[in-house]
């Protein structure tokens, strides 16, 4: 570990641009892996489960991303006549049980690395200069709004119906992939809900939001559930999370700037007499999606992914 004298720490070092670029390029590769695992026409996870449990794939049913939907199983909990259907297909338990368990074990890696619906607008947003983007950090209480929406999503099936399925970025990512592979029928519905959903997902909360992850932050119940599981258990020091070591930090704010989910807060060192010149860098584990851009981009290696020391 590099130990920097406090006087050196006043000079902001250059960000590790190459390492950051390589991390983003790797994540871009995982974007395609996520497509292959979850989305039709590939849906490798669905096909694997169907092969292991043939009864879960009746007839000519082809799995797609909806086979891993979180909102439908939550809705079905309020509809006892659907319990049998839900119980017959183990894939419906993936987003409500397996992904949160995985998030407890290693953080919400699905969100940062494997979710095509989340990373698509993030990568598209790289072509838009930052000065044209909203930065919700400082504008709204991101964490409160995020978990307010999650509570809403979890409760409404028990008191009303649910929010329209077309108001979901997974749906429109699937429709887009299907259209690219010749099935354009889902796009015919674009005249209704799709227009608004795509405008919000791709543009307002995507390309024109700093980080490009506005939909993930506010309107993805699956991501919120995983982040909640990860955030609540992050106080267990033996669980791997993004951790900050203040020893050599120059509080350059590079991590804060590159974080796509606006999860990092940097406050400058205390300058009062007698106070330790230690910067305060807080990683909000209830927002962090473990993309590791901050870890790779930190010029002094003050952020790392692992157990607390």
């Amino acid at each position: 570990m590099i130990v920097v004298h406090p006087s050196d720490a006043s000079t902001p070092p250059a960000p590790r641009a190459e390492a950051l670029r390589r991390n983003r390029f790797t994540r871009f590769g995982f974007f395609f892996l996520g497509l292959a695992i979850f989305y039709a026409p590939f849906a490798l996870l669905g096909r694997l489960v169907g092969w292991i449990f043939p009864a879960s794939m009746p007839g000519t049913w082809v799995p797609d991303v909806h086979t891993n939907c979180m909102r439908m199983p939550v809705g079905w909990l309020a509809q006892p006549w659907m319990w049998g259907w839900m119980g017959n297909n183990p894939l419906y338990f993936t987003p409500i049980i397996l992904l949160p368990i995985a998030a407890v074990a290693a953080g919400p890696l699905f969100c940062g690395w494997l979710c095509p619906a989340g990373s698509f607008p993030e990568f598209l947003g790289r072509i838009v200069p930052d000065r044209f983007k909203w930065d919700f950090k400082g504008m709204v209480e991101i964490t409160s709004v995020r978990y307010g929406f999650l509570v809403g999503f979890l409760i409404v099936p028990f008191v009303a119906a649910s929010v329209c399925c077309s108001f979901c970025n997974f749906t429109w990512m699937q429709n887009t992939v299907s259209a690219l592979f010749g099935n354009v029928a889902p796009w015919l519905y674009i005249s209704t809900t799709g227009v608004l959903t795509i405008v919000i997902w791709i543009f307002l909360l995507g390309m024109f939001t700093k980080g490009g992850r506005g939909w993930c932050l506010f309107l993805c119940p699956a991501g919120s559930l995983m982040s909640l599981a990860s955030g609540v258990t992050s106080r267990f020091k033996w669980l791997p999370r993004v951790r900050h070591d203040a020893t050599s930090c120059a509080s350059c704010s590079n991590c804060e700037d590159v974080c796509p989910v606006r999860a990092i807060d940097v406050s400058k060192p205390h300058e009062s007499p007698g106070a330790a010149p230690m910067p305060q860098v807080k990683v909000n584990q209830l927002l962090c999606n473990v993309c590791l851009d901050c870890v790779r981009g930190c010029p002094r290696g003050c952020l790392r992914y692992g157990r607390a020391q």
Binding site: S144, R146, G148, V151, V156, V163, T192
Partner: peptide
């Protein structure tokens, strides 16, 4: 912020319920 967001989803669901006689969602055709 928390209450407003939770309430907003409630309102969205209520509107969907009123708009779609079948009790939205899933069909995406209406």
């Amino acid at each position: 912020s928390f209450g407003g967001a939770a309430g907003a989803i409630g309102i969205a669901a209520a509107v969907a319920r009123v708009a779609c006689p079948g009790g939205c969602p899933t069909c995406t055709q209406c």
